[in-house]
Design a binder for these strands. Structure first.
Length: 208
DNA sequence: CACCAGGCCCTAT
DNA sequence: ATAGGGCATGGT
């Protein structure tokens, strides 16, 4: 596995910022809504998630928990039977541990205990809802790193990649970086990449 | 029509 | 430890 120097990652972050500007990227009005979105967005296009989010908009967590047709409300986000269960677990955690009390110290570990919350979901919530020093390593991140730097990371290298990134960037930069990467991958570094028009192709190892 | 999207869980090697 | 299948909708 080729070693990615810290300076290269910093440089990539700069280049992406030059192209896309600042991204207040997670579109949510509250920590609760970040949590809802993090569950609903699992392996699902954000477009489909938005409709589900809209139906939960403004509701208190306790009201969503007692809602009788929650599955129907989030149906558009897909996997809705699982996600109804997962969402209830997360909101229940929110109500019991966060809403009434002060912010817990290590949300990431507590979230990982919940059914339906894996590393990426936990890190998304910890970063965007509670501004902790972490970053989700999603498939976009792995894809971009592999193409741009010629590495061959896979999901099993999650902790290594996360560790590298949080060792380099501060919390605000991590929020920014994840948004930039996902924005870029949605537009250019797709599964079938659009290298012809890619704004950062010059330094990319693919360089098609 | 096939394939994909801001994963996770469970199971069989 | 790791790969593979299931989960489900809506857009291209």
């Amino acid at each position: 596995m080729p070693f990615i120097p810290q300076s290269s990652l910093v440089s990539l972050q700069r280049d992406l910022t030059d192209v896309y500007g600042f991204q207040y990227w997670w579109p949510a009005d509250s920590p609760q809504e970040v949590m809802e979105g993090a569950i609903l967005a699992q392996n699902t296009s954000w477009k489909n998630v938005e409709k589900a989010i809209a139906r939960l908009k403004g509701k208190k967590a306790s009201d969503i928990l007692s809602c009788q047709d929650l599955g129907e409300k989030i149906r558009s986000a897909g996997f809705y039977r699982q996600k109804e269960r997962f969402l209830k677990g997360v909101l229940n955690y929110y109500v019991s541990k966060i809403e009434n009390l002060s912010l817990p110290i290590d949300t990431r570990w507590e979230l990982l205990e919940l059914d339906g919350v894996g590393r990426e979901t936990a890190d998304s919530i910890a970063l965007y809802a509670f501004h902790q020093h972490t970053i989700p390593v999603d498939s976009y991140t792995i894809r971009l790193l592999n193409r741009y730097f010629g590495t061959s990371y896979s999901g099993r290298d999650y902790e290594e990649i996360r560790g590298k990134l949080i060792g380099i960037f501060n919390q605000e930069q991590l929020m920014e970086l994840h948004g930039l990467i996902d924005e870029h991958c949605k537009m250019f570094c797709k599964k079938v990449p659009k290298c012809e028009s890619c704004p950062i192709r010059k330094k990319c190892r693919m360089n098609i």
